[in-house]
Write a protein that binds this DNA or RNA. Sequence first.
DNA 1: GTGAAAGCGCTAACAA
DNA 2: TTGTTAGCGCTTTCAC
Lengths: 343, 343
Amino acid sequence: MADVAERAGVSASTVSRTLRGLSTVSPEVRSRVEQAARELNFAVSRQAASLVTGKTGVVAVLAPTLNSWFIGSALSTLGPELRAAGMDLLVYLTPEMSARADFFERLPARRNADALLVFSFDLTDEETARLDDLQMPVIYVSQHSDGCPSVYVDDVAGARRGTQHLLNLGHRRIAFVQTIGASGFSFSSNERLIGYQQALTGAGIPLDDELVVATVVSDKRRITEAVGELLSLREPPTAIFAEQDELAASVIWTLRKGRIDVPERISVLGFDDHPLAEWSDLSTIAQSPSDIGRAAGELARSLINEPDADPARHIVLPTRLIPRGSTVPLRGDGEETAGNGAG
Amino acid sequence: MADVAERAGVSASTVSRTLRGLSTVSPEVRSRVEQAARELNFAVSRQAASLVTGKTGVVAVLAPTLNSWFIGSALSTLGPELRAAGMDLLVYLTPEMSARADFFERLPARRNADALLVFSFDLTDEETARLDDLQMPVIYVSQHSDGCPSVYVDDVAGARRGTQHLLNLGHRRIAFVQTIGASGFSFSSNERLIGYQQALTGAGIPLDDELVVATVVSDKRRITEAVGELLSLREPPTAIFAEQDELAASVIWTLRKGRIDVPERISVLGFDDHPLAEWSDLSTIAQSPSDIGRAAGELARSLINEPDADPARHIVLPTRLIPRGSTVPLRGDGEETAGNGAG
DNA sequence: GTGAAAGCGCTAACAA
DNA sequence: TTGTTAGCGCTTTCAC
């Protein structure tokens, strides 16, 4: 920076002011400094600047993996969003338990970021406590955390809406397939189950535990088994609501393999609007990871820059039904537009 | 750090030495310092340290998006790899041209990272020149760059092997479907086409331009059209080699929609071993983004820590054939094990 | 094996 | 509007 100052014939302070875009620099000096900086190919060192400002200009993200549609999409929006505000995106990945333990032990983000975004974890109380030690805003994405800022979609309402869609189509025996925890990775499953139950109850349909089965998304064998359990009920479902699109796609595949036509014999509804859903012509409840990423970025920025911002602000994003070909009226006796289809 | 020093009854220098694991600290003092640091929940500030060491402890990645199987998988391995070496992963995302232009204009990574990993771009010469301005190692991933370190798979050999597989199955009319540039996003397509051509030529089969069609991966209409072109040839292909699994899956879907059985009437081969491939029972040429990420991480570390390391080291990773259900012998007259199938 | 002192590159407060 | 000065928190000589 001294070089630039010398070349432009000004002091280091003036260079600093110019490069930070402060208005207290005369146009003439400004252009001289800018040119000198360009010629010298100079860029301010964040490290040095942060030493005195106390801000790192970095937002950190803690995620189990980047290999996920949701996280990938959210970060792909978040990154440019932050960049536009002059901030960088730092990623901490904890695909394994050991990496995760190490993260919480050392908290490497400490002092090296201005805020931390926590993606999709089932955190233990102990881990949450550790995050409180971090002297920075911690924002939870896709999960609630009392007293902490967070961003998530209204899973309950979404699942309620999805179930209602099936009810409107005349379905009464509606199964719910939930995912079970792939090692500490939360997918808001309970909320979705609750929404499903609320809709049924609201329609005066008693809950039937036999209609709720659980499986690991990637376990085809278990999925086959779960679908088998549903089909072998005395009164099998005419519609299946899967907690995630990927699971829904597996369910459809399993059903068709068993010569059960979808949607003719069984309607299937997913959740997420994963690219797979459009591809498979799967009706689904859409959430937008992109919007979530954007909202998380804005929240982070406001928490960093406005000390008096609400420290526990929740942003709840909506979901919306996308009817496609995998859900149809039950034997033609119901229609989405026919009210709540109770008759 | 002064606090820790005071609490442990030593000087700041000693705390620094202890926390960096230097051996010139007596065991007794060491344990006292470590305990003090723990009690104070102290962590060294990278910013301050890097100011004097000149190293940031950060590896930056430039990628178009995180919403990609390849990039997501590679980074999911790279991140923990770096973390284990005490380094952080910074991500620059340029989904749009404007963000990309901005990155190359400002080069925000400059002075804020120890190395830059460039993922999957078709860079212009001008952009490459800008990266040379960056006073740090720049590593190209999934692409060659003369005189620069890089990590990639041998696409030519992989495509040759894939084509040979189809030849071995008795196919002679083998089409190649290539992808055309989704805005600056390179998928090594030319190399794969070359491998395909090499294998045909090696088997004494003349190249037929009509058997090579191009399409955008996400453009279903164009894919349908391209498949139509192939099917309407006087002598249609009996096998189709798609440059990517996602494209191969689309091709299969299109063929089946047109009542053309796969693999009975036409064999289809993909490239990548995307999760979709296993799911669709698609034969493919596998590459491992995870291995690529690991190799890139190691290369970055060696370039950062060993000033006399070969500054233009190339790491070429292998591919391997994964035969699944989408490729079968031509009318039963050939087999993979029957030599090169030339007869 | 340990401490004192200098200084990394920048920004902020103050003076001019 | 601009320059001067004093650190930010750490590492690194260089003494001891």
